[in-house]
């Protein structure tokens, strides 16, 4: 299994490509909505991309809703992978 750091790099790479974002701007403290220009319509696509690319199932809506920054998203993905690889 790849390390958390590798996972985060992969998430950045995939999101940059799928949402036409500049990886340079995707620093941990960057907010998805204000800084990166994503909007509520992109949220569904984000879930689809994460599920397809990493084979995980995004079910925790409360956690998903609380994601504001790139770092929040990384922590979310790391936690999800840990939970689902245990299951």
């Amino acid at each position: 299994m790849i390390t958390d750091d590798e996972l985060c790099r992969k998430v950045i790479e995939v999101l940059a490509q799928e949402f036409e974002l500049d990886p340079e701007e995707m620093v941990p403290e960057a907010t998805l909505y204000d800084d990166l220009g994503l909007d509520s319509l992109d949220a569904v696509d984000m879930v689809v991309v994460l599920e397809k690319t990493f084979g995980m199932k995004v079910t925790d809506e409360a956690a998903l809703r609380s994601i504001r920054t790139v770092d929040d998203l990384m922590q979310f993905v790391i936690r999800l992978r840990a939970e689902q690889s245990r299951a």
Binding site: E18, F19, E20, D42, D45, M46
Partner: peptide, 8 residues
């Protein structure tokens, strides 16, 4: 469209 949406 962003590639993710187009693909979807």
């Amino acid at each position: 469209f962003r590639p993710a949406y187009r693909k979807r």
